[in-house]
Nucleic acid binder design. Sequence first.
DNA 1: CCCGAACCTGAGCAAGCGCTTAGGGTCCGT
DNA 2: ACGGACCCTAAGCGCTTGCTCAGGTTCGGG
Lengths: 207, 207
Amino acid sequence: MSTAEETDGGSAPWAEVTPEAARRLLVAAVEAFAERGYHATTTRDIAGRAGMSPAALYIHYKTKEELLHRISRIGHDRALFVLEAAADGGGTAAERLAEAVRSFVRWHAERHTTARVVQYELDALGEEHRTEIVELRRKSDAVVRRIISEGVQAGEFDVPDIPGTTLAVLSLCIDVARWFNAQGSRTPDEVGDLYADLVLRMVAAKR
Amino acid sequence: MSTAEETDGGSAPWAEVTPEAARRLLVAAVEAFAERGYHATTTRDIAGRAGMSPAALYIHYKTKEELLHRISRIGHDRALFVLEAAADGGGTAAERLAEAVRSFVRWHAERHTTARVVQYELDALGEEHRTEIVELRRKSDAVVRRIISEGVQAGEFDVPDIPGTTLAVLSLCIDVARWFNAQGSRTPDEVGDLYADLVLRMVAAKR
DNA sequence: CCCGAACCTGAGCAAGCGCTTAGGGTCCGT
DNA sequence: ACGGACCCTAAGCGCTTGCTCAGGTTCGGG
C-alpha cells in the first residue's frame, strides 16, 4: 500500500534524528502508526517500510514503544513551540489568539500524519512516558488559557467560562489531525484562516 | 481491572440487543474497546469481562470485528437520532442549532465510553462495514449543514464558509468523547450548554 | 593487508492471538 | 422418563507477534 505519501510536509522534518538509519525507521513508523494505529502495526511492517529486516529495528530502538515515545515527544515539542511562538508574537490578545490558532491548526494539517500519531496514540505509551507527554499538553493548555485571560482582562473578549473555552479551542484544533486529508479540497492555510476566524467569534465581546 | 465503571449511562442502554448473553458480551466489548482500543483488546478479555469462556463469544458473534460493527452501527444510529430530533424540533434556526449541539454533546459526554468506540475505532472496521458507517456520518453532516444554511438564508446567521463551519461544529462535538471524563468537574449538561453557546457565537450575525 | 567497530541479516523462540471443535450440562415438551 | 435444542466450556490449532542472537558485511586507520 501507499506510494510515498509525502513523507511529512515542510521544513526539515526529522533532521534531528540521527543516524540516518534510525531516522528512516522513525519516519516509517510514523506512516505506519498513522495509517493503522500503534497496536495494529507490526515491527516487521515498520522495518519493511524502512527497507530493513525486523532485527535492524532493535539496534536503534529498544522497543516498539520507545519508537512511539520518540515520535510523540518530538511532535509535542514542535507543536508546543509553534503555539508559544504565536503567543509571544506581540499585538493585541485577539491578534495573538488568531495567530496561535492559525499556526497550531496549520501544523496539524500540514503534518497530519505525525499529528495523528502524536494526538491519538497517547494511550499506547507506558506509564512514565505518558505522564511526561501529558505535562507537555498541560503547557499547551496554559498558553491558550493565558491569551484568553489577558483578552478578557483587557476587555477585548467576553468569555464566561475560561477553562471550558480553552478546552474547546484546543479540542477543535487537535481534531483537525483526525479529519484532515491532503487530497481534500482545503489547504492547511485555508483551514488555519477559517479556524482562527471561528475562534475569534467564540470569544468576541458583544457589541 | 475496573469495577463496574457505569455500564453506560442513562436510559435503556443496549436493550435491543438480545439474548441477554449477547448483550453482556457487547457491553463488555464496549468497555474494553474504549479503554484499550480495538486492536489492543483480546477476545479473551471481552469474554472474561462478561464472565464467559473465550469460546462463548463465537456462539453469539462470528468475529471480533462483527462485535465492533454492531456497536458502531447502534451507536451511530442513536447519535444520529438525537441530532435529527433536535433538528426537527421547530423554532428558529438558532434555537434548533443550539438544541442540536446541546443534545449531541450531551450524548457524547454521558455515553462517552460508547462514543469513544463509535467515533475513534472506525478504521478497524472491514471495508464494507466502514462504508456503511460512513454513510451514517454523512447524514449527520447533512443535518447540521441544513440548519446552518437555513439560518443564513433567514438572516439569523453570518457564515462565510458553510461546509467548513459544519465540519468544525461536528468536530468540536465529537471530540468531547475523547476528553470527557466522568470523574471530571463538568456534568454532561454543563458541557452541552457551554458548547451550544460557543457554536451560536461561531455563526452569529454581526450586529 | 589486517583489525576492530559499526551496522545489518537469517533464523527462530516463547508467548499470545483469533478462532474451532468435541463434548457436557440444563431444561423443555411430550 | 427421555430425546433434542440450546448454551456453554476445556483444550488446543495454526499463525503472528515482539524481540533475540550468532554471525556476516563494510569500511577507516595503522
